[in-house]
């Protein structure tokens, strides 16, 4: 009998808990952790969730396995319908999209994300770009942010290059405040902005000011570890909880959904070694 789960399964379960039943939820490409979280949610607590797959725009697909690329016919097998690109984004602009998942090479305290370039306007490193994330960060009702690179080990010079940064070089996806400090809610967007940030070290929500607030850590991470790996100081919930492990049935479901372990490509080697007891 399965008595433990991997860190990936732990994080998928944490992401799954951010999904509400009866809402339209969308994932982008290059994010198997999110694809799995959505498929787990649909098969557990959120059966009436509308699952729209990124890249294929298939509605409620049942892929036979997870492929290493999201625009693959594997990923929209069993879909009851398929949307056009314009229809998907129209849904969000019209306020019908309940949740979208976004990430970035830089994420700041307000949940702004940079997926465009490090260094701007003098570009040092060109990132792939955010796809439709910019639009959806404004239009989707709620956003779950995630990263598997919160941990920022010191380099040879003793410097850390943070993923959770003081300032984004470029704001690709909007968080709760603009670069000038203007609250995003004054802009009149459809969406409410980031609600959760799930990392390999902890779980954050965003307080009434829109500031990241640590609410939980994993069994094997500490508050100090969370804080020393960040370029800004998060606020702290009154009680910082421990992120619960998934139920055995959820772990087994994830293993059935992703037999090729495609999601492990998103996880660093040191985190692949983490193990959590399950009941």
């Amino acid at each position: 009998m399965t008595t433990s789960c991997t860190f990936g399964e732990m994080m998928i379960a944490a992401l799954t808990r951010t999904i509400a039943d009866g809402t339209l939820v969308f994932h982008g490409f290059g994010s198997p952790l999110i694809q799995l979280a959505m498929h787990v949610a649909k098969r557990t607590h959120a059966p009436r969730m509308i699952l729209v797959a990124g890249a294929t725009y298939g509605v409620d697909p049942e892929p036979p396995f997870l492929a290493p690329t999201s625009n693959d016919w594997v990923m929209d097998r069993g879909a009851s319908s398929s949307l056009g690109i314009e229809e998907l984004f129209d849904l969000a602009a019209a306020g019908r999209m309940g949740r979208m998942f976004l990430s970035g090479l830089q994420i700041d305290r307000w949940g702004n994300c940079n997926v465009t370039a490090l260094g701007y306007p003098n570009i040092k490193l060109k990132l792939p770009g955010g796809g439709g994330g910019c639009n959806l960060s404004c239009d989707a009702a709620h956003i779950t942010l995630w990263t598997t690179a919160h941990r920022s080990p010191k380099d040879a010079k003793g410097q850390r290059r943070f993923r959770l940064v003081e300032d984004c070089d470029f704001i690709t996806n909007l968080g709760h405040r603009t670069r000038d400090g203007q609250p995003a809610k004054e802009l009149g967007h459809r969406g409410g902005g980031p609600q959760w940030l799930v990392t390999e070290l902890g779980l954050f929500d965003f307080d009434a000011d829109g500031h990241a607030r640590l609410t939980a850590v994993y069994r094997d991470t500490s508050l100090d570890e969370v804080l020393e790996n960040m370029g800004f100081t998060p606020r702290l919930a009154a009680k910082v909880e421990t992120i619960p492990a998934p139920e055995r049935s959820v772990v087994e479901l994830i293993r059935r959904l992703d037999p090729l372990k495609v999601h492990e490509k998103e996880i660093r080697a040191e985190d692949l070694r983490r193990e959590f007891a399950i009941t």
Partner: peptide, 9 residues
């Protein structure tokens, strides 16, 4: 469009 405002685009 309504979105994009507030980002660096």
């Amino acid at each position: 469009i309504r979105s994009v405002r507030g980002t660096s685009f």
